[in-house]
Nucleic acid binder design. Structure first.
Length: 909
DNA sequence: CGATCCCGCCAAGCG
DNA sequence: CGCTTGGCGGGATCG
């Protein structure tokens, strides 16, 4: 079979062979690539695609997916570790969907096919651990699954949002296409859009360099400027008001009028000098240009909402005076493509505007807004803001919010905002923005905040707070942020927009802060309502931990913490960016980075450094331990489920804890979101991650803990934060954030050492909807291999014991569990954080499910090193493949549930 | 039925 | 001439 598969694959992707080439080419990449290669080609065993991502897409979950169905739980892993079948699946998955289908038809993968059934319970067959694989295969690739947005997420998951300057990531189109199981053509669509934002640049044939989001703000700034110059805002206003017909006419005129697109081209041009290939000449690049223009529309729009039709009209090439219908249609199609990518980047989200005419599809900008101001300004803002806000105040707010949530279930952002001083005001920079005063509508905030799970993922990849530098803190201030929207309740549904809580995507936390100030104005005419699908999503989010910080983010956070609230100014130094060409700033590109502003480099250096340190140094303060979930549910847990969860009252969360924001990580049962994030870690190198990740992702109930070592700041205290469950959000915010919703445990590391800690959250219980969903996995054993200390933590999701029920009476079991942890406001400042990205992860043993509790970590020595470092691990995230396998095997043995986590010893060291 | 947008043909650009 | 890119639009899906 395998052979066959391969063959098919080959057929499909004739180019694949290149992979090897890559490897050869790029040393750095080589690792990744190799890995990648291995998987895909060499080692059939490992699942090829494991992109972490899958999550439910932003969009909806189609029935097909069975999102709802909880996943099967534990079993799957247990089941065969690695069966030939699995391999096969992998291969297939790697192959194009078609093939997969084909295979299915054949019935090769029975188990897979039956996945659904499996959910129900039977699936032992499920292949090994990588549920992800299963997913792919199994699910018939519904259209959505194949969607560009999802694909983009997967794509993004592969790379760090904020890559270190040093690491140059090369993107091989072939490789990517192969790994993602899509045609190259699709990759072009993604890359082109990313290129328009300078997230990537073309290095050579088939090769793109990944820059990450370092220069995103700058780019946006430039685009904004351009947009203003182009008077897009006016055009939009005009078009929106006009009747369609008129619009068309006008539209044609407009273009003529004066907004020569020509300029755009130049401006836009992504082509970098560096890279030959991107020649401006090239005829097209229309997609890229269009993408930039599209973004500009948002940037210049006060409402930050752009309807598709208007965008299409404006973006249509001037070439045609009269936009013919067909053309228009085509444009719209492309816009969707672009929008999908932007959505994946968490820059926009889909909404609908209600106009006289009716609802119209539109997109709302949810990305950073402040970029208009110089970075510095931003920083300032955040800084100023923070001080103003008293932590206590924040806390109070949160508490209030929580209470509300608890009671009502919904939290209205607006209120929060009100309470909080509007530091936002401070935003000097963007004059154009509307005054907040006007509307004060929470909508905006909410929307901004709102992130799709997917997005989140994306974000996770992408955004680093720090880079924005200061952002973190700023974000924190945002009242909303802390409480993510837990608003689960019905109301929420009703008016998602209103209720949405801000989740801070790592991405643009800053934006939030800014936004607070800005917020407000939603065009009256425009009603931004989350689309149906969306609405659902948000809800989900609410339930979930809103923010989960992607590993990357976390790292970033850590870094920032270490460094201080305002990390280096360097971060963005680009204030100067004024160049026309938005693109100008490219972060380091693989090939030639000349341009990369030094600042940027510096910045990168810093942050990344942090990360690296973590890797290297090994003592990263923070580590996230996520127990992998046995079950992998295939799908992302149904969001809906989450929604249910969302209802959970936050109540008590320890309000006081200020622990680092970093902790935000949740494990969440909720799943999907989280999971996706988790994927991030994989992002880098790994190209894919182990299936587990996916699984983890998918599975809701995983418990994830963020383990914070007692770095310098703490006296030997380690903080263990449950990633999962609590609805609260841990703000990513740095320590500043007053309250984290996340329950955490502080353990004196030394103390602990000797003693095992048992923590059993009631976790999942309920799991909301999904029956199978949460498996509780058995107790999780955390071992701190730490050198000296080797405290072990046992966590039993099932919850056997609840040490301290503490405060919350809450119904939520989950919460309780969380509560049990003692909290202390300690803020760990971690020195270094490990990057998720870092290869380390690969090696990292990650949580393995082990029957045994103790000792031996499964991981190989090498891995151990890694351990030392802290790491951020996601539940299935990337362990080595090998590891995974082991895990899977182990898991077999063990009840599926149990996982053994190793935590780097805290202080020890 | 309109909104979305996947799929892949096919041509421009380039070596 | 072949390969990389990517415009483009038919037609399938989704909601």
């Amino acid at each position: 079979m395998e052979v066959n598969c391969l063959t098919l694959k080959d057929l499909i992707n004739p180019r694949q062979p290149r992979l090897s080439d890559f490897v050869a080419d790029d040393g750095e990449n080589a690792q990744k690539e190799n890995i990648f290669v291995d998987r895909s080609r060499m080692a059939p065993k490992t699942p090829i695609k494991n992109e972490p991502i899958d999550l439910s897409k932003q969009k909806i979950f189609t029935p097909e997916r069975n999102p709802i169905t909880p996943v099967k739980l534990v079993d799957r892993q247990q089941t065969e570790p690695w069966t030939p079948t699995a391999n096969l699946k992998m291969l297939i998955s790697a192959a194009s969907p078609d093939i997969r289908d084909w295979e299915k038809r054949k019935g090769l993968f029975r188990p897979i096919e039956n996945k659904d059934e499996a959910f129900t319970g039977s699936l032992q067959l499920r292949v090994v651990g990588d549920s992800a694989v299963d997913k792919f295969e199994k699910r018939r690739p519904s259209r959505k699954q194949k969607s560009l947005g999802l694909l983009c997420q997967k794509f993004l998951a592969r790379y760090p949002s904020y890559p270190m300057s040093t690491e140059k990531t090369t993107i091989s189109l072939d490789e990517v296409a192969l790994s993602l199981g899509v045609e190259r053509r699709r990759i072009y669509d993604i890359v082109n859009v990313l290129e328009s934002l300078h997230l990537v640049s073309r290095v050579a044939k088939n090769q793109y360099g990944w820059h990450g989001r370092h220069s995103l703000l700058q780019t946006l700034r430039n685009l904004q400027r351009l947009g203003e110059e182009q008077k897009y805002e006016e055009q939009m206003a005009y078009l929106q008001q006009k009747e369609p017909d008129l619009m068309d006419c006008k539209f044609g005129e407009r273009k003529k009028d004066g907004y020569p697109d020509l300029q755009d081209q130049q401006l836009l041009d992504f082509s970098e000098p560096d890279y030959p290939s991107s020649s401006a000449n090239r005829k097209d690049k229309s997609l890229r240009i269009m993408s930039q223009k599209f973004v500009m529309l948002f940037l210049v729009s006060k409402t930050k909402i752009v309807t598709l039709d208007v965008a299409a009209k404006i973006l249509i090439e001037r070439s045609q005076d009269a936009p013919d219908h067909s053309k228009f249609k085509t444009k719209v199609r492309r816009l969707y493509d672009i929008a999908n990518v932007l959505t994946s980047l968490a820059l926009i989200k889909k909404v609908h505007v209600t106009e006289e005419r009716g609802r119209k599809p539109a997109f709302k900008w949810i990305g950073p807004v402040d970029f208009s101001s110089s970075d510095e300004e931003v920083a300032d803002v955040s800084a100023s803001v923070l001080p103003e806000m008293k932590r206590e105040a924040c806390i109070e707010i949160q508490d209030c919010a929580k209470q509300k949530l608890a009671r009502h279930g919904s939290f209205n952002t607006v209120q929060a905002s009100e309470r909080i001083p509007r530091k936002a005001n401070s935003e000097p920079s963007s004059p154009s923005r509307e005054e907040q005063g006007s509307g004060g509508f929470s909508l905006e905030i909410g929307s901004l905040a709102t992130v799709y799970p997917q997005k989140i993922e994306d974000n996770s990849q992408g955004k680093a707070f720090d880079n924005e530098r200061g952002m973190l803190p700023s974000s924190t201030p945002d009242p909303a942020a802390p409480f993510p929207a837990h608003s689960v309740d019905s109301e929420y549904y009703a008016n998602p927009s209103v209720h949405q809580v801000v989740s801070a995507p790592q991405a643009d936390l800053q934006a939030f802060s800014l936004q607070n100030g800005l917020n407000g104005h939603v065009g009256v005419s425009l009603t931004a309502a989350a689309s149906d699908a969306e609405s659902l999503k948000p809800v989900l989010l609410a339930g979930q931990p809103l923010l989960y910080v992607p590993s990357t983010s976390l790292f970033m956070l850590c870094g920032s913490l270490q460094e201080g609230p305002s990390p280096g100014p360097g971060a963005e130094g680009d204030s100067r960016s004024s160049e026309v060409s938005a693109g100008t700033e490219w972060p380091s590109t693989p090939a030639a980075q000349k341009r990369p502003s030094e600042e940027r480099k510096l910045r990168e250096a810093e942050e990344p450094a942090t990360k690296r340190q973590s890797r290297d140094g090994g003592d990263s303060p923070l580590s996230l331990v996520v127990p992998k979930k046995p079950s992998d549910s295939t799908d992302f847990a149904s969001p809906k489920t989450l929604g249910n969860r969302g209802s959970v009252p936050l109540e008590n969360v320890h309000s006081n804890s200020h622990p680092t924001a970093a902790q935000e990580v949740w494990g969440k049962a909720a799943n999907g979101f989280v999971s996706s994030e988790w994927g991030d870690p994989s992002r880098n190198a790994e190209t894919e991650t182990p299936s587990k990740e996916n699984e983890g992702t998918q599975e809701p109930p995983l418990l994830q803990y963020l383990y914070v070592r007692s770095p310098a700041g703490l006296n030997g205290l380690s903080v263990l934060l449950p990633g999962s469950q609590s609805p609260h959000v841990g703000g990513p915010s740095s320590g500043q954030l007053p309250s984290l919703g996340v329950p955490y445990m502080v353990l004196p590391s030394s103390t602990l050492g000797p003693f095992p800690v048992l923590y059993s959250p009631a976790v999942a219980g309920p799991v909301s909807s999904a029956p199978g969903t949460v498996p509780n996995t058995g107790p999780v054993n955390f071992g701190l291999p730490g050198l000296g200390l080797a405290p072990h933590l046992l966590i039993g999701p099932a919850a056997v014991v609840n040490p301290k029920p503490s405060t919350l009476p809450s119904a939520d079991p989950q919460l309780r569990g969380l509560h049990s942890l003692s909290q202390s406001p300690v803020v760990p400042r971690s020195h270094s954080v490990i990057q998720p990205e870092s290869p380390v992860y690969d090696g990292y043993p990650v949580p393995v499910v082990k029957l045994q509790q103790s000792p031996a970590p499964v991981t190989p020595k090498s891995i151990r090193h890694t351990h030392q470092e802290t790491f951020f691990k996601t539940p299935g995230s990337l362990g080595d493949r090998v590891l995974r396998r082991r895990e899977s095997k182990q898991s077999q043995n063990a009840s599926s549930v149990q996982r053994r986590l190793e935590i780097p010893s805290s202080g020890a060291d």
